[in-house]
């Protein structure tokens, strides 16, 4: 139990740092649902199933769709 929490925390930090410091925006946008999914598993472990469902549906599902749409709409200034 403790080891799983520690491993997930380390994965969370690695994903967040990758999301911030990667050069291309596409990688950052695609790493965002992974970040959300790790948070969902952590919430289930910490006994908060309602929060986990909301996080899975809204943050990891719908907000990623918003980011992908924005990334698609701003394609002509992607190189900067």
């Amino acid at each position: 139990m403790d080891m799983i929490v520690t491993l997930l925390m380390i994965f969370l930090l690695v994903t967040a740092f990758f999301m911030v410091f990667t050069k291309q925006t596409a990688n950052a946008v695609i790493a965002f649902p992974i970040f959300g999914s790790i948070l969902v598993v952590l919430f289930v472990i910490f006994q908060a199933p309602s929060v986990a469902m909301a996080e899975a549906v809204i943050t990891a599902g719908l907000a990623t769709g918003f980011f992908v749409i924005t990334f698609n709409k701003t394609k002509d200034s992607r190189k900067e």
Binding site: S50, M53, A54, L62
Partner: peptide
């Protein structure tokens, strides 16, 4: 677990 907010997003 669930409720109006989560179900509404699933319907959306």
């Amino acid at each position: 677990p669930g409720g109006g907010f989560v179900g509404g997003v699933v319907m959306a």
